[in-house]
Simulated assay, not measured.
Amino acid sequence: MSDTPSPLPRRIGHYVSNLVIVGIIRLALLLPYAARVRLVGWVVQHGLGPLAGYRRRAIDNLAMIYPDMPARRRRAIAGRCLNNAGRTFIENYSARDFPQRMAGVVPQGPGLAALERAAAKRQPVILVTGHYGNYEATRAALVARGFDIGGLYRDMANPYFNAHYVKTMEAFGGPVFPQGRRGTAGFVRHLKAGGQLVLLFDQHVFGAPPLDFLGQPANTALSAAELALRYDALLIPFYGIRRADGLSFDAVLEAPVSGTDPRAMTQALNDSLGARIEADPTQWFWVHRRWRIHDN
C-alpha cells in the first residue's frame, strides 16, 4: 500500500464506500448465522455485484472460457459466483461463528497426512489455493486441529476497508503478512521456523510467465513453487468447497506437488484449480481480470 496520500475525492470515495460496507456487515451480524450468510449472498448477487460491474465481468470471462455454453447458463453461473462471494465475505467477518462451525469439519485428502508428517518434523508447508469456495474454511478447520497457519495477503485499494479486513484474517489463527518487503520477510521467517502458510495464486501478475489456465494463457506467479524449492517446503493444493446447502464445507487437501521446475509445478497448481472449476464453476471468483495477456 502506497504511502502517497490519495487525492481528496478518492479518499472521500473510499471513506463513503467503507461506511456502506461496514453498515452492511454490522446489520448482517445482528442476524442468526444462516440468515446473515444467505442475506449477504443475495445482496451481492442482486445488488452490489451488478452495480459494481462484477456480474458483467464474470459473464465476459465465462464467454471467453466457455464460448459454446448457452448464455443463460453463463448468466446463472455469474449470479451464483456473486452469491458465493457475498457468503464468503460475511463468513469471514463472522469471527466467532464461522471458526466454531469449521472446528467440527474433518479435513480430507492425501495432503492431510503429508501435512501432519511435515508438522511433526517441522518441515515448512505452503498451502496453495485460489478464490474458490471459501479458502478460510479449510484454514479454520486446520487451525482447530492445532496447526498454526499464517497467510500472505494483498492490500486492498481502499485503506479504510483494508484496516478491518486484515483483522478478519488474523482472527482465524496464525500470523498474516502483507505483500511487499516487510511482509515477505516475516513470511520467510515463519517458513524457516517450520511453519505453515497459505498462498492464493490465481490472480493476474504483470510480468509473470503465461501459463495455461482453463485453456487460455494467464500470467501466473511462480512464487509459491519457488519458495517451496528454496526452503524445502511441501507444496499442497487445498480447497474449501461449499456444499449444496450453501452453509457447510468440505475441506480438501490434495497430494503435494513435487518437482524441481517452478514453471511445471505452477502449471500443476493451475491444472488442479482448473479441475475444481470444471467440476463446479459457480464456486470460483470469475470477477477477477485473470486473463490479461495482451495488457503486458
Rank of each mutant, 00 (worst) to 15 (best):
residue 43 V to N: 00
residue 252 V to R: 10
residue 98 F to Q: 00
residue 63 A to I: 10
residue 6 S to T: 14
residue 38 R to K: 13
residue 47 G to D: 04
residue 151 G to S: 01
residue 6 S to A: 15
residue 217 P to T: 14
residue 198 V to E: 00
residue 217 P to I: 04
residue 291 W to T: 03
residue 60 D to Q: 14
residue 296 N to D: 14
residue 258 S to K: 14
residue 289 R to C: 06
residue 161 F to G: 06
residue 34 A to D: 15
residue 4 T to R: 13
residue 147 F to H: 13
residue 116 E to M: 14
residue 216 Q to W: 15
residue 207 G to Q: 04
residue 184 T to W: 07
residue 248 S to Q: 10
residue 10 R to L: 15
residue 180 G to F: 01
residue 186 G to Y: 06
residue 224 A to Q: 03
residue 286 W to N: 08
residue 110 P to E: 11
residue 11 R to Y: 15
residue 73 R to E: 15
residue 180 G to Y: 07
residue 277 I to R: 08
residue 169 M to Y: 13
residue 188 V to K: 05
residue 48 L to G: 11
residue 235 L to C: 04
residue 104 G to K: 04
residue 291 W to R: 11
residue 152 L to M: 13
residue 265 M to N: 05
residue 106 V to A: 09
residue 292 R to H: 14
residue 93 Y to C: 08
residue 276 R to H: 14
residue 89 F to D: 00
residue 260 T to I: 12
residue 32 P to T: 05
residue 61 N to Q: 08
residue 110 P to A: 14
residue 286 W to M: 03
residue 85 A to F: 15
residue 283 Q to C: 04
residue 27 L to M: 06
residue 9 P to T: 09
residue 27 L to H: 10
residue 125 V to A: 12
residue 57 R to Q: 15
residue 146 G to C: 01
residue 81 C to R: 05
residue 22 V to S: 09
residue 59 I to Y: 06
residue 106 V to Y: 11
residue 139 R to C: 12
residue 245 D to M: 05
residue 237 P to R: 04
residue 182 R to P: 11
residue 161 F to A: 07
residue 269 L to Y: 02
residue 33 Y to I: 11
residue 35 A to Q: 13
residue 109 G to A: 01
residue 206 F to R: 14
residue 180 G to T: 02
residue 288 H to Q: 10
residue 91 E to R: 01
residue 258 S to T: 09
residue 237 P to D: 08
residue 262 P to H: 10
residue 283 Q to P: 01
residue 55 R to D: 14
residue 150 G to I: 01
